[in-house]
Write a protein that binds this DNA or RNA. Structure first.
Length: 582
DNA sequence: ATACATACC
DNA sequence: TACTGGTATGTAT
């Protein structure tokens, strides 16, 4: 990554309580009432009156009602919000045609070009233009928005939160200002640092961005290179300054559907859900004119544990029958499964169907009785009941109805008639592709059962050093911070790392750290201090020390979690004990 | 390539 | 009674 870049201007703009605002606009009598968009199970948005009662988004509706008995619930109307969102984005596109949207109510704009073209590339111009955009939104839509203006996306986003609702915050493009601001900022405010990573950092006694920079060595040893760079750079207020995508169209990488229901456990029920999802996924894939090579089946158990089965095929899939047929393979692979409350089906490894005349396309397959045979393991996932009891007993029939109801070939769909002229190959080839896909799948399943015939050579993976431009977050650690001591024990590895530390300091963060040091006036020399700390840590020759350190942190986290669990169990937060599933 | 975890709205 | 759903992407194996 380059050095700190302060010459560009980004604005992050965010509609205030978007869904609720749309509803209030359409029904002004709601204006003075506490409003929640959502239902009894989940609230998606609330207005500021409801927020005064502590009713917030992502809160179950029944708790919201408890906190605020006269809360007005409104059923979400997503098409309406999408329409409003389009209008919002049309206004923004005047200022940056390449704007990046985040959900329906947020966007990142690179205002640099607009400001330069209009000879407004100065502090006043930037403040003025953000004001103007917000006014235009208010005039056209009757809704307010909040904005943050700064030299990069991350800072702009953080700033947009500071003056809500109907306000804006401008951050000067000045390194000292930025560092001053960042130092007191809790790490959680870094977009990409969520609950878990906040937790892990707290285990290292890191709470503010200042802590993060001061304890960079610990972070370096605890996290991967990639995450380390992300965290330290973010703490210094550095983030990407260029657009993620070159031109217009966003290349969506995966597409999926899922639904939540009362727990089910019978094979027939599973298959029924799968078939519904397949039909839904087909229509989505169709609308977006995409096909995909990888199919992912997701289950969420009654205990809220998520399981995933996925398979990549040699040929592209696009129709519900394909999703059903290959989805069954995934289902059978996972069977038996304990009772679940959610199932999802996702297509990834996607391509645009229209552009792929010569591409390998899986044919419209037929589903026959053989595909509907239950796998070994019985009709129940983990239950002992007999099949005739409960609401799932008659599912064989239900499946057939659902199946035939929704089954149709894409070519029957008038909207998409043109697709088939371009995308589909002749039936013989299609047949061949289906056979190849099946063969592929069977080989996979066989290998999985009996093990691979030949061991693959293990590839030595180079560590990811470059922070990808569109990355937002550090990802999973299995809930436990990993000490990578084993990696740095090897002499050459250690040397390499020390070199990297020097390099990071000299080439990337030096200016940032320098300013930081001047501010805090705590250290004599930036790199000396850093390297010294690193050497101290590297002295831990015994791997067990590293593991013990890791254990300490893990125990800390565990205890904290237990305490929180106790609070929940004891009925704090107004959450009934029965709320936690088993 | 597969499975899983985290994050964001 | 009752804690979403969709997309993206890092990490481990």
């Amino acid at each position: 990554m380059k050095e700190r870049e302060v010459r560009r201007t980004w604005m992050h703009i965010d509609m205030d309580m978007f869904y609720a605002a749309v509803e209030i606009r359409d029904n002004p009598s709601l204006k003075k009432k506490p409003v929640a968009v959502g239902d009894n199970t989940m609230i998606t948005t609330t207005n500021y009156i409801a927020r005064k009662y502590g009713v917030k988004s992502a809160m179950p509706g029944f708790i919201g009602r408890k906190l605020c008995p006269h809360l007005v619930f409104i059923k979400p109307n997503y098409p309406k919000y999408r329409q409003a969102s389009d209008q919002f984005k049309r206004i923004l596109a005047i200022y940056d045609p390449k704007l990046e949207s985040v959900g329906l109510d947020e966007a990142n704009l690179d205002l640099t070009d607009y400001l330069v073209d209009n000879k407004m590339d100065n502090d006043l111009g930037k403040i003025f233009i953000a004001q103007k955009i917000r006014e235009q939104i208010f005039m056209d839509m009757g809704m307010t928005a909040s904005a943050g203006i700064a030299c990069n996306k991350m800072l702009a986003k953080i700033c947009s939160e500071l003056n809500k609702p109907n306000g804006q915050t401008y951050m000067y493009n000045d390194e000292v200002e930025i560092l001053k601001f960042m130092m007191d900022l809790p790490v959680r405010k870094i977009p990409g640092v969520g609950k878990v990573n906040e937790h892990i950092l707290s285990g290292l006694n890191i709470y503010s961005c200042k802590d993060l920079v001061e304890k960079a060595t610990e972070v370096y040893v605890t996290f991967t290179e990639y995450a380390f760079q992300f965290l330290v750079k973010s703490a210094l207020g550095m983030a990407r300054v260029m657009h993620e995508k070159e031109e217009g169209v966003v290349a969506q990488r995966s597409m999926g559907v899922s639904c939540t229901f009362r727990p089910i456990h019978r094979y027939n029920q599973f298959r029924e859900k799968l078939f519904r999802l397949a039909a839904e996924l087909e229509s989505r894939a169709h609308q977006n004119k995409v096909m995909g090579k990888t199919l992912v089946l997701e289950f969420k158990s009654f205990k809220f544990e998520t399981k995933i089965k996925s398979m990549t095929f040699p040929h592209y899939l696009y129709s519900q029958n394909q999703f059903k047929k290959y989805g069954i393979l995934l289902l059978n692979q996972a069977w038996p499964i304990e009772a679940i409350r959610l199932m999802g089906l996702r297509l990834s490894n996607m391509r645009d169907r229209r552009k792929d005349k010569g591409v390998k396309v899986c044919p419209e397959v037929q589903i026959n009785d053989a595909d509907l045979i239950e796998p070994p393991g019985g009709p129940d996932g983990n239950q002992q009941e007999t099949q005739d009891q409960g609401d799932g007993g008659n599912n064989q029939e239900e499946d057939k109805i659902v199946f035939s109801d929704t089954m149709h070939h894409p070519s029957n769909d008038q909207n998409n008639a043109n697709l088939d002229d371009e995308g589909i190959e002749d039936p013989e080839i299609e047949q061949k592709h289906d056979e190849e896909n099946m063969k592929h799948a069977k080989e996979k399943l066989f290998k999985q059962k009996y093990g691979p015939g030949e061991k693959k050579k293990k590839k030595i993976k180079g560590e990811k050093e470059i922070l990808s431009e569109n990355s937002r977050s550090i990802q999973s650690w299995n809930n436990v911070p990993r000490f990578h001591m084993d990696k740095i024990m090897g002499k050459s590895e250690k040397e390499k790392r020390q070199e990297r530390v020097q390099k990071i300091l000299k080439k990337q963060n030096q200016r940032g750290i320098e300013s930081f040091m001047n501010e805090s006036d705590k250290y004599l020399s930036k790199s000396d201090h850093f390297v010294k700390q690193f050497e101290e840590l590297s002295k831990i020759k015994n791997k067990n020390d590293g593991i013990n350190n890791c254990r300490q942190i893990r125990n800390k986290l565990k205890k904290k979690e237990e305490r929180q669990q106790k609070d929940i169990d004891s009925g704090m937060f107004g959450v009934p004990k029965s709320f936690k599933p088993i």
